[in-house]
Nucleic acid binder design. Sequence first.
DNA 1: CGCGCTGTTGAAACTTGTCAAAGTTTGTGG
DNA 2: CCACAAACTTTGACAAGTTTCAACAGCGCG
Lengths: 259, 259
Amino acid sequence: MSEATALRSTQKVIFLNPSESPVGARKFEVTCSSCNLREICLPAGLDHDDLQRIEQVVYARRRVKRGDALFNAGDVFNSMYAIRSGFFKTSLLDGEGREQVTGFFMGGELLGMDGVGAGHYNGAAIALEDSEVCVMPFSLVEDISREVPALQRHLHAVLAREIVRDHGVMLLLGSMRAEERLAAFLLNLSKRFTRRGYSPLDFHLRMTREEIGSYLGLKLETVSRLFSKFQEDGLIEVQQKHVRIRDNAGMEQLLTTRH
Amino acid sequence: MSEATALRSTQKVIFLNPSESPVGARKFEVTCSSCNLREICLPAGLDHDDLQRIEQVVYARRRVKRGDALFNAGDVFNSMYAIRSGFFKTSLLDGEGREQVTGFFMGGELLGMDGVGAGHYNGAAIALEDSEVCVMPFSLVEDISREVPALQRHLHAVLAREIVRDHGVMLLLGSMRAEERLAAFLLNLSKRFTRRGYSPLDFHLRMTREEIGSYLGLKLETVSRLFSKFQEDGLIEVQQKHVRIRDNAGMEQLLTTRH
DNA sequence: CGCGCTGTTGAAACTTGTCAAAGTTTGTGG
DNA sequence: CCACAAACTTTGACAAGTTTCAACAGCGCG
């Protein structure tokens, strides 16, 4: 792809979405090769040339304040986003304004894939703490992935991984009881924190009980009761948003034992 | 892409998966341009050249008898499949052998996207009636989509559509009551039958109550009771697997009315 | 430093699941 | 082609799980 094409693509992004401001968005600030999330974000075993070309897809960074939307359902789709730091929830609004949280996302994970192909995002992404994302204009991603098969494969893998993740949530919502859902949720968070170098046994929940409940298909009171029950059973210690896992094996057993 | 590359790709498929037998699998039998599902399967507005190249991705057809698996969870991933005729369910097995149905698929819809990138399928696809699929070796799809941007966009759109579909199911499982779930399910089927030229008001369910229940996160008895209740309420007529929708508006109201 | 959002807990109601039995359809082998 | 078995469906009564409503406590943001 020519540099001219790249510029055209990126400018389109700027003008269509004013909030993607050029402030702090100069390309030379961004390098994937030096990003500490590189191993999570990018495929392994890239040679220097490929890596350099893949870095072109990251056009800019953007800060999102806690409570603000990275994008809303229905917004024109231009870009996918990689989370550099922070924490997001994604959600849908059903017909009557009820919210369904479809996922929680942390550093190194991608957002916005649900907009590919449709021209607009299907759901919203809201920051649960002050966050920063890498902006990847999708037309650029497509252009470069035609030239760099490693990026093409990675893009497909990323989209498919989201499908697999969603199927996991469907399994959770469709066939687990409340207890199992919360255990699965906590263990999943724990695993993802580990990968990012945080403690797997001691972490801070960024979301409210209501958001957890929405994600798990439960009411907030049920979630609260379960936290208390897990604590009584010696599985965890909870204090508001702070969770400490005391009996990891016990939690896993909750998931593998029928009733 | 050279013809040699194409042949290498297709042969790999044959040898890795013996059930993809060359019987009835000769390429010249397959033409997307003459397929009556073309409008559902392929992007609109393709010129003759692009269409010819896209047809290359369909290497073969394969018949799957009712009850047989098109692929199983864990099978090596080589191909995506387009359904030419018939009906499938996809499902996951949870830790203890319980099945979660993740979707039902009919003519013109695609299967196997959950294997992209991981090297193996995440779930299984089982034929609910004698079916026939187009086999699309994924390496071929990737090769050609690098050359034909229309195919590239279509592939991305197809993957994203699956993500959006899954989010819809998560909404259903996470925030609807049993009645709403069944109504949503029936209306969704109705809509998809319409698109294929079948009656939207009068159709034959290919799946059992248990499979419907698994998909909707309900027990089969609950599904059965709801069918009876919908009949009492004059919304539908049911007789085993045959369903006739009598009050479409009433069904839709079930979905838009809170409680 | 206080007001509001978030979280906890209790009791009662409701929805859905479980268990059981009987009826119906489908498929198969004689 | 019939008969029988297996699989699927329906329905009832009861149990269990989850939600609803309500009251109150606590933390944290402004």
